Computed example of a mutant assay.
Amino acid sequence: MKTKRKVEIAVISDVHLGTYGCHAKQLLTYLNSISPKKLVLNGDIIDIWQFKKRYFPKSHLRVIKKIMDMASDGVEIIYITGNHDEMLRKFSDTTIGNISIVDKIVLELDGKKAWFFHGDVFDVSIQNAKWLAKLGGYGYDVLILLNRFINWCLEQMGREKYSLSKKIKNSVKSAIKYINDFEKVASDLAIEKGYDYVICGHIHQPKMQLKENKFGSTTYLNSGDWVENFTALEYQFKRWKIYNYNKDKLRAFYADEDIKDMEVKDLIAAITIVEQKKKKKLN
């Protein structure tokens, strides 16, 4: 049995469970490789917008069960709501055992303040025209499916994989401007509030960069996603790093072998265990 890497905090976002673009097995591999004190789920973990009864594979259920198991084992799970799982905002500030649901949170890390939130609050298209944003989400899902087929063909020919959506994002000036504006607004607000770190998701762009303006500085961090980039943020030994599943040499762990045997009843059992442990603590 391989030793799991100990990290103080692990941050993942934009997993989009329940969509074709989600790479649940890779995420399971990552979660099985770490032993965090806190796991921050920074929005869009379950894609309620595009949820389909006919598509929720066992590997996706297994991710949820894995998170429940981690909570049962003493890991503090902080679920920050995003736009694709905004229905959970009805339950903001709710705690079940080691799992808490919040819209945003500030944590003190070795004397420094870290501000966590998903980031959709800055997205005008979502705030003012949700139907348009949802329509864009469906188009993105189709693009991911097409990309998978193209990559399968490229693999058969022994060629390197290609990301259509990344190519489109990087070639469209308005997309680049949106990303830059998002990072600037988040960083300026963090500086104004006196936070040393601002940690977001939402735009699927992993990044760690010192941001400065005339009022001060902050470190902007984005956890990326598990649709294209397969990235997470990790905090250990008073510093942050971006974990990249495709490049990081510390990824040599496995996805659970029992995915094929995973059933909904197993997920319910995991939730029940979390509830039972909560009751024991109260008694």
Rank of each mutant, 00 (worst) to 15 (best):
Y235F: 01
S223F: 02
F230A: 11
I271R: 11
Y220F: 03
E228V: 12
K265Y: 13
F230G: 07
A269E: 15
G216L: 00
L267S: 09
N229M: 06
D248C: 04
W240S: 00
K281N: 10
T272Q: 15
G224T: 03
K277V: 11
V227C: 13
Y243A: 02
A255P: 09
L267Y: 06
L221C: 05
R251P: 01
Q236A: 10
D256Q: 08
G216D: 03
D261Q: 07
R239V: 02
D248W: 07
T218D: 01
E257D: 12
V227G: 07
T272Y: 15
Y235S: 01
S223Q: 04
I273Q: 14
A252E: 12
M262H: 04
N222T: 03
Y235T: 05
E275S: 13
W240G: 00
T231G: 04
N229V: 01
F230E: 10
N222S: 02
D225G: 05
L250G: 14
K241I: 07
A252W: 13
D225P: 08
E257M: 11
A270Q: 07
A232W: 03
F253M: 08
K281L: 14
K241G: 07
K280T: 08
K280D: 13
K265I: 14
R239Y: 04
G224H: 02
E275M: 14
K265S: 15
L250V: 09
F253E: 06
Q276V: 10
Y254W: 09
I273F: 11
Y243E: 01
R239P: 01
Q276P: 09
E275G: 13
A252Q: 12
K265A: 15
K249F: 12
I268D: 14
I242N: 00
A232E: 03
D266E: 08
L233G: 01
T231D: 08
K279R: 13
L221E: 02
S217V: 02
L221F: 02
I273S: 13
L221Q: 02
W240F: 00
A269R: 14
N244E: 14
D248T: 05
K277H: 10
I242L: 02
K280E: 13
W226E: 04
A255E: 10
K249D: 14
K260E: 02
